[in-house]
Write a protein that binds this DNA or RNA. Sequence first.
DNA 1: AAATGACACAACCGCACCTTC
DNA 2: TGAAGGTGCGGTTGTGTCATT
Length: 267
Amino acid sequence: MARSPCCDKMGLKKGPWTPEEDKILVAHVQKHGHGNWRALPKQAGLLRCGKSCRLRWVNYLRPDIKRGNFSREEEDAIIDLHEKLGNRWSAIAARLPGRTDNEIKNVWHTNLKKRLKKKLATPNSKGHSTAAASKCDSGSACQSEPVNLNFPGKISPQPSSSEFSSITDSPIRNMEIHMNTGIKDEQMDSLESFPEIHESFWSDALSSDNSSMPTAFHTVNDESQLQFPLSPADALEVGYGHSSRIDDGMEFWYDVFIRAGGLQELN
DNA sequence: AAATGACACAACCGCACCTTC
DNA sequence: TGAAGGTGCGGTTGTGTCATT
């Protein structure tokens, strides 16, 4: 719907915040909370729009914000999460305590994007699959090309968190599986093709205790439950799997995105 | 020392989603 | 059921700082 931006009102200040404004905003939020951002500036006596106040609080003044440079671990986590989630900065920020979506977005654009490009350009350095990385770079959620799997069991979502409760009581009619698979850099050259995925992978991956990602799947035996592929537009992403295994002395890792679909049928 | 370019980060803008009426 | 308002998100821009020429 058409609506005028909240900051269009004349007399509202824009631009960098002064320490005095910060003080007023912090004092007001600490005393009254921020139930209504639109009303807050007037109540607090600030010549700002509510949106600007919210942004300043969320990105800068919040007491739980971790300031300072990103650690190598945090940067790696951002790269990893961006590969899985795409440009969903708030979702990435939710997994990095003390960091804001804006901060992560800035770090990505000014630093990590270049680092990733450099890494991918380096010979003999496949890292997380090149195709996946290039797609992630375009901004959309990373989706690797569907691959033909030696599909051992049949996978059915078993949501483990309330986040997915909307589908738990309904039969899943069809699913789509996307898979990023990779091999440690130095092993790539000696391998002619990606390894077959065998049963142990699924049992390992799907039962692993991965704290950052929901493991929301289990194998089932009724092949008739599954139809491939499913249009992403119709699909509801239900979770991720991430695992690695050592086979014949070589280490393989996998990121798996599983979507369950037929939402019209489910609802 | 001044000019220029690259980089980092804060803040703004527009849109979409959600809630309320 | 749809309009209106509030909020959050992601893209983009503006500006300060530092390095290089």
